[in-house]
Nucleic acid binder design. Structure first.
Length: 279
DNA sequence: TGCCAGGGCCAAG
DNA sequence: CTTGGCCATGGC
């Protein structure tokens, strides 16, 4: 069991970070969060300024939870109006996690046109079916399926994980990625707009999924995924009623308005969606 | 029970 | 370039 003490000037809220809907493989029970990242089973809890965990080392924890970033500086940069201010007050300490790109890509393809409980359930089924079993001492845990495993999977077997019409997307994107193993390095080197265009070449990846992958999988903190909730919030609180706005308009609006850390603003607003988005 | 969900694809206008 | 129908599934 390892531990670290958070610095007093760098807030971190483990519960908000893991429950806000950016990751789908963490479960809380009895004050402990258990999650599977790569081939590691990690158990972690927070007591005030103290983190305690096992399953990985401290550098991984610091990197995965972005503990190296100056969160107060980020939050003061986006704190531009009473709406986002309320979200910052309520969710302070929420940090955007650095997800493995492949897991992030597949997860957000699965996340299209559904709800968060269903996403978690489907990813669990997919890992059980196509991942590798990891010994964890407790109940059986499974790693996220590799691109090779999904590329070779039978579509009907993928579909059996309650994935519906997304099953062929997953099989095809796995084959595309397998044929282009340097894909993540390519994305990482490109500027935002070009990286986005590159990502959208993959099956099942449109504007919104591309923005999610850039934000959560590649640390592009300027990316603003616009799902139905964020669209509602921007329309209700930031635009004139009836103002014409498609996806690109909404995304650019948020990026121009909130600045280089607009992705953080997006995630804080998303975390507060049930309080600030009506209907 | 019906509506909705961290949308994307594809054809038609 | 923009719009509209369609898509499987399960939570609420």
């Amino acid at each position: 069991m390892l531990s670290l003490t958070l610095s007093a000037d760098q807030p971190f809220n483990l519960d908000k970070t893991l429950s806000c809907g950016q990751v789908f493989r963490w479960v809380e029970a009895g004050g402990w969060w258990t999650g599977i990242v790569g081939d590691k089973v990690i158990r972690i809890r927070q007591d005030g300024d103290h983190l305690t965990w096992d399953g990985t080392d401290e550098p991984f924890i610091r990197h995965y939870f972005s503990l190296d970033l100056d969160l107060p500086a980020i939050l003061s940069g986006i704190d531009r109006d009473p709406i986002i201010h309320q979200a910052i007050e309520e969710c302070r300490g929420l940090r955007i996690i650095r997800q493995p790109p492949w897991e992030c890509l597949v997860s957000y393809i699965i996340a299209t046109f559904t709800n968060i409980p269903s996403i978690k359930r489907r990813i669990t089924l997919l890992c059980r079916e196509f991942g590798n079993e990891i010994s964890s001492g407790g109940e059986a845990c499974f790693s996220f399926p590799t691109q090779e495993a999904l590329a070779r999977a039978e579509e009907c077997q993928v579909r059996a994980c309650s994935l519906g019409y997304r099953a062929p997307y997953l099989c095809q994107v796995a084959q595309q990625i397998e044929a282009n193993p340097g894909w993540a390095g390519t994305i990482r080197k490109l500027p935002y707009e070009e990286a986005r265009t590159e990502l959208m070449q993959y099956r099942g990846v449109g504007r919104k999924v591309a923005d999610c992958v850039l934000l959560f999988g590649f640390g592009r903190l300027e990316a603003v995924p616009v799902d139905v909730w964020i669209e509602r919030i921007i329309r209700q609180h930031y635009l004139n009623s009836g103002e014409k706005a498609n996806y690109e308009y909404l995304r650019r609006y948020a990026q121009d308005y909130f600045g280089p850390f607009a992705g953080y603003a997006q995630e804080y607003l998303f975390c507060m969606r049930n309080d600030i988005a009506k209907k």
